[in-house]
């Protein structure tokens, strides 16, 4: 008689609630490696968040704009369309426009966009800053203020600015995204620092730093696997937090996502290819252990959601 050699899990990923009211979403809570349902539970299946930008993107492929063409100049309408037409469960508002290396929009201008988006949708929102420590320290604190009561996930928090943003997030009761550069120990250290600051366990999410397909995906893949291994089998309680991957921007900016079939016939249809570059990467992150993946194209998202459903469904 064959007996499955099972892993003895000693830990459980903490559950974190995003958003408020009826459409709030619980993530995490798993007691096994991803989709290893023969030896544990995934009470909350992994979720996909729809990416929305704070301004009209000027460098997107036409086939990325296409599903949102009527709303892409209006972040609130864009977010609403994600929810109403594409049934988004989570919105990830990417504050690209505030980036000092880019458009460098002033804080209050961006904050008013955040406010509009928050008011336009009833699903949970993740607000993703610029990854510029100084700008985010100011910007994300204001975001925390204007989103009071909405339980909005705010990040990325780095070792440099976690105190400023973390303290404000505690005051307004928002979850935070602890961001570390593809390193288990640094991830753990930042989570400890956040705990010391007073951020509650059910308010911490891990941003492991996400690499795109062909551009360092394997680093993220292995760091996520190691995070989950530590949390689930090595009683490392400071790594028992859900993982969020900000994937879309890493995929859609690459050369291989921009070339058309005319540019390089061997790469095939550009729209389908980019959708598959995005969804194959998302599958890799989910299989490694991501709890939330931020994605761009509604068709990639639909494909990945179908896969999540099949990987977690009982019976043939």
């Amino acid at each position: 008689m064959f007996e499955i050699s099972k892993v003895k899990y000693t830990g459980k990923i903490k559950e974190v609630t995003l958003g408020s009211g009826e459409k709030a979403v619980i993530i995490g809570g798993e007691t096994c490696y991803p989709f290893h349902l023969f030896e544990g539970e995934m009470p909350n299946t992994p979720k996909i968040a729809f990416e929305v930008w704070d301004f009209e993107p000027d460098d997107w492929q036409d086939w990325a704009i296409e599903p949102f063409r009527d709303v892409i100049g209006n972040p609130a309408a864009w977010a609403r369309k994600c929810v109403e037409v594409f049934h988004a469960e989570i919105i990830a508002l990417n504050l690209k426009g505030a980036d000092p290396n880019g458009k460098d929009r002033v804080v209050e201008e961006v904050v008013s966009v955040v406010k509009n988006v928050i008011e336009a949708v009833d699903v949970p929102v993740i607000v993703w800053g610029t990854s510029n420590d100084e700008k985010d320290a100011v910007l994300l604190r204001r975001v925390a203020e204007v989103c009071e009561g909405k339980n909005v996930a705010i990040g990325p928090l780095s070792e440099k600015n976690y105190k400023h943003i973390g303290a404000t997030a505690i005051a307004y009761n928002h979850p935070v995204l602890a961001s570390s550069p593809i390193d288990v120990n640094l991830a753990k250290q930042l989570n400890i620092l956040l705990g010391n600051l007073g951020v509650k366990d059910e308010k911490i999410l891990i941003d492991p730093t996400t690499g795109g397909l062909g551009y360092g995906l394997e680093y993220s893949y292995s760091v996520i696997e190691r995070d989950k291994m530590a949390g689930l089998t090595q009683e490392d309680i400071k790594l028992q937090y859900p993982i969020v991957c900000n994937l879309a921007q890493e995929i859609w900016k690459t050369k291989e996502a921009k070339l058309t079939q005319e540019d390089d016939p061997k790469l095939g249809d550009e729209k389908k290819r980019t959708i598959l570059l995005e969804s194959v990467s998302a599958m890799s992150m989910l299989i490694a252990g991501a709890d939330v993946v931020i994605m761009r194209h509604p068709e990639s998202i639909a494909l990945v959601q179908e896969m999540i459903k099949e990987l977690t469904s009982r019976g043939i």
Binding site: L213, D269, L276, S284
Partner: peptide
């Protein structure tokens, strides 16, 4: 095999099988 389908898989395979 279509360019749009096999290329992402080849990239993924390259990444996963890179010696860490």
């Amino acid at each position: 095999f279509k360019g749009e389908s096999i290329f992402p898989l080849l990239l993924q395979r390259l990444n996963i099988y890179t010696d860490p």
